[in-house]
């Protein structure tokens, strides 16, 4: 199985350079090849389909009042959901990695449930638990807070499905992190708060940002669960993915692709900004 080794390279003189390239090329090729076939080709098909619309038509379909309202609802709600999970994700990951307590393994395992449950089931169970006579919804109802079938419900579904992202991206980094440094900080008299802000948080930031970005992107695209907890009324809690499916089910491919393209472009832009921020942060750090 060692046929990928570089030792048998026929040219011997510029070996170090060659070694570097040959070592580089296989992962590079797999990465680029796979990306092209599996990812860029389908995206190209989408863009090609969207570009069959005249620019004026494209603009018209993309900026109907209904479409505009779905963008706002989708992105703002997803952002809030991702940020909430960012805060609580740090807490949960920290607790799971650093402390021992009963049922820890069980709780750790359960973090992945939002992925494992079909999104439709997630929506169903959230709608049940948070509806006015559900377990949690009935406690909130006297306070005048309605969750199911409102925008809050959309946010709840997004929090639910993106929960694993932050926790799971932070866990490995926390696991690798040396405990000594914190302990050193403590023994030097730093408060918990100081230790957290100055010592623990900075190395976590890249992973945290990644987690939040992944969660955000996933929340933007979520369909299965939101369609059930939301009332799907435009301008109130209709999200973009549901609008796309509505178009698709009417065999309105151009409508679906145009909104799909806009959605893709905005989320990609946001991800790009986050990734740039991260790259910049790293440069700044060193």
């Amino acid at each position: 199985m060692s046929s990928t080794t570089i030792n048998r390279s026929p040219i011997s003189k510029p070996k170090s350079l060659l070694a570097k390239i040959s070592q580089v090329s296989l992962p590079w090729r797999i990465t680029l090849g796979y990306l092209t076939i599996m990812l860029l080709l389908p995206v190209a098909a989408l863009l090609a389909k969207a570009s069959t619309e005249k620019p004026s038509d494209f603009w018209r379909i993309a900026t109907t009042p209904v479409a505009l309202s779905t963008y706002e609802i989708t992105f703002v709600t997803a952002l809030v959901a991702a940020l909430i999970n960012g805060v609580f994700g740090v807490l949960v990951a920290w607790v799971l990695v650093r402390y021992d307590f009963p049922f820890k393994r069980f709780i750790d395992a359960a973090i992945d449930l939002p992925f494992a449950l079909p999104t439709a089931v997630a929506g169903l169970t959230l709608a049940t638990v948070y509806s006015e006579n559900g377990w949690i919804g009935s406690l909130l109802a006297p306070l005048g807070i309605k969750v199911a079938f409102t925008r809050l419900g959309v946010g709840m579904a997004m929090i639910f499905i993106t929960l694993p992202f932050v926790v799971r991206t932070l866990q490995p980094v926390l696991q690798e992190m040396e405990k000594d440094i914190e302990e050193a900080a403590w023994s030097l008299g730093a408060s918990h708060w100081q230790t957290f802000w100055r010592v623990i948080l900075p190395p976590l930031v890249p992973a945290l940002l990644t987690g939040v970005a992944l969660g955000f992107a996933r929340a933007v695209g979520e369909y299965g669960s939101v369609v059930i907890v939301a009332s799907n009324i435009p301008f109130k809690d209709l999200i973009a993915s549901v609008l796309i499916i509505q178009r698709l089910e009417q065999y309105d491919y151009s409508g679906a692709t145009v909104i799909g393209t806009v959605l893709l472009a905005i989320s990609l832009l946001i991800l790009l900004v986050i990734n740039l921020l991260q790259a910049w942060g790293k440069k700044y750090e060193t």
Partner: peptide
Amino acid sequence: MWKFGVDPIPNKMAGRALKRWIS
């Protein structure tokens, strides 16, 4: 060093592994 996407000297071994993977 070397640049993005440029791979001037094709490597037989890597190529073979890639082929195997693709197949």
